[in-house]
Simulated scan of single mutants.
Amino acid sequence: MLALLVSFLIAVYLLGPDLISRWAADLVVFRKTRVQSHAEEVARSIIGAVVPLIVAFLWARWSGALGRTGTHYDLETVFSSLQSDNFFQAHRPQFFTSLRAFFWMNFVILWRLYALVVLISIARIVIVLSYNRIWRRLHKRWMRTLLATIVPRISEWDLLFSDMLLPEGSFRIMADVLTKTGGLYQGAIQDRMLNNDGSLQSITLANPRRFERAEFHKAKAEDIETVSDEFWFNIPGNLFIVMSSDIANLNLRYIRRKPLSFQPSDEEREVLTRLLDRLREGK
C-alpha cells in the first residue's frame, strides 16, 4: 500500500505537470523528441517540476492553508500505518483522521502547483507565438540565450518551415526539391508532415512544376541557346507530395509576400530629379 501511495504521489507531483507542459508545447510547435529510459523521464520530470513545486509549497505555507489542514503528526501517522499493520491496528481512529488531513494537505499544494504549471505553459505558448518579435527586440546575447531555453526543444524542420527567425513581415516558403531519381521539382510549401521524433516525413508543394533536365542538357550539348525557365513545366494538379525518403537535396527560399516599399526623402528626390535632368540634357 505504501508503494502504491508513493507511486501515486510521484505521478501527480512530477509526471502530471510534465504531461501538461508537453501538451501545451505541442499546441504551437512540433517538439524534437528522443526515446528516453524510465530513469531519464523521471529525472526530466523532477527538473521541470521542482521549481513550481517549491513555489506552490511556499505559497500554501505562507497563506496558512497548509497549517490549517494538517500537521507533521498526520504525515507520520499515515505513512507509519501504511508501512506497519501493527501500527495501523493500534492507531486505527487516528489513521483515518490523519488520512483526511493528508488529503487536504496535498490538495492545497496540488491545485497551486497545477495552476502555476498552466500559467507557465500559457506564458510559453505566448512566447513561442511571439518569438520572432521578441527575439528581434533582444540585442544582448545572454537575453537571446535565455529566451531559447524557455521555449521547448523544437524540431529543426518545424523551425525551417516557420517564420520564427525571419524578419518581420509575411513570407512565402518556396522549395526546390531534387529527388534520388534525378527529378527536380519546385513549388510553394503548402504543408509538411513530421514523424514522432521530429524528423521530416513528407512535404506538400502547391502549384508544383518539374524541370526537364534531360531536354535541358540535350539543348546545351547541341549549343542551342537556352533559357532555364523554358524547361519548367507545370504538373497537373494543385498539390504534389514528396516523401522524405525520396529527397536527395532540398533548398528553401523565403520570399516576402509584399515587397518592401521605398519612400525616398526630400533630399533623395531632389538628387534623383537633378540626375534625370542631366540625362535629358545629355540626349
Rank of each mutant, 00 (worst) to 15 (best):
H139C: 12
F233H: 15
P208N: 07
T226C: 06
S155F: 04
A101E: 06
D266Q: 13
F161M: 03
R192E: 05
V50W: 06
W23L: 12
R210H: 09
N251Y: 14
F161H: 01
F87P: 00
A206D: 07
V117G: 05
S228F: 13
V29G: 04
I20H: 01
R92K: 13
L75E: 08
L119N: 08
N234E: 14
A39R: 14
R34D: 15
A101N: 13
L14E: 07
Q190A: 14
I47D: 11
Y254S: 03
R44G: 14
D158Q: 04
V28K: 02
L160N: 13
I20E: 00
I120Q: 10
S170M: 11
L276F: 11
Y185E: 00
F107M: 14
E268M: 14
Q83V: 07
Q190I: 05
I109H: 00
A60Q: 02
I46K: 00
R31S: 09
D229M: 09
R112Y: 04
N106F: 03
F79P: 01
A49F: 01
L275G: 07
S63P: 12
W59S: 10
T149P: 06
L260Q: 15
V227Y: 11
K180Q: 12
F231C: 05
V51F: 07
K140M: 12
W111F: 14
Y73E: 13
I255M: 11
W157T: 01
I47A: 14
N251E: 14
L14Y: 09
A56M: 02
A206M: 08
N195H: 11
G67R: 14
K218W: 07
R136Y: 11
D18Q: 07
F231R: 05
L129H: 06
N207E: 10
M174W: 10
D74M: 01
A175V: 09
R210Y: 10
L53S: 04
L200C: 04
N86L: 06
L129Y: 07
V12M: 05
P259L: 03
L9M: 06
L66N: 04
A123S: 12
E156F: 10
A43H: 12
A25K: 01
L166I: 05
P17A: 02
R144Q: 13
D223R: 12
T273Q: 14
G169T: 05
P167D: 06
L53Q: 00
R31Y: 04
K32F: 11
I120W: 11
F171E: 00
D176T: 14
S21I: 06
I122D: 04
I10V: 09
N195I: 03
N234D: 15
A101R: 06
I125D: 01
L113A: 00
S37I: 01
P236R: 09
E41R: 13
S7D: 09
E168K: 11
M143V: 10
Q94V: 03
P52G: 04
K218T: 14
L178P: 00
A221V: 08
N106K: 03
L194R: 01
A56T: 02
V42R: 06
R136I: 05
L99T: 10
L138I: 15
R61V: 08
S244K: 06
S199T: 10
V118S: 00
F107K: 12
P259Q: 05
V128R: 00
L2H: 07
S121Q: 02
S81V: 04
R209D: 03
A115W: 09
R141E: 10
A65H: 08
I235W: 02
G64W: 12
